[in-house]
Amino acid sequence: MVIWQVLGLGLAAMGVYSLYFAWQRKARSWPLVVAGWVLVLGSITSWSQTSGVDKGPALGVVAVILVALITIIAAAIKAPVKTRRTITPRQPQQSWQASVWHEGLSITASILAIAILALIAALASCTAMFMAGRAVGLEHTANLTLSMFAFPMAWAGLATFIGYSTSTFLRAAVLLGLAVVSAAIILVTMQGGG
């Protein structure tokens, strides 16, 4: 087991260093990048031999992150301190304080959209996903696990979309559309008896 651990650490170090070496070059070197990722993958595979089917690769991921952090720290220490021009902040705009109210209202609207509308849409879509999976005979625990993982991801995706989109109409259309389609799927699958 120790051999696999040492090999895993070595491969992680070589993999991250290979990526670092590729990054240092002016022109992109695909062989080095590919070699780096293959070595990182090799490290995780090696760690997977040290424990069970889930714990082994997890240990590998932890080891790779630690090696990467050490590399970042080393790169940071090595980086020269350059003299840089001082950035002078712009003079405060005369009117910016007037926009504070507008900003406050916009944030309040975003809070409501993310915390209520996006929640309802994500909850409805994941419930619909579960019900659809159940209707087609997906095994219960797999179906439930998929829905449990999908729910926060869907909510996060919708929250990102709300912050990203500048069109109120598009935001409303996506959220309402998702909720309505999900409700329809839930109703159909409920009547089908599942």
Binding site: L19, W23, A156, T160
Partner: peptide, 29 residues
């Protein structure tokens, strides 16, 4: 879930994710 959303939006906002993989400007405020 909102922390996941920050990861999503952070990744989207970071087009040079691999090119900047090891960039660190020390003492640059």
């Amino acid at each position: 879930a909102m922390l996941i959303a920050m990861s999503f939006s952070g990744l989207l906002a970071h087009p040079r994710i691999f090119r900047d993989a090891f960039t660190f400007r020390r003492g640059a405020g």
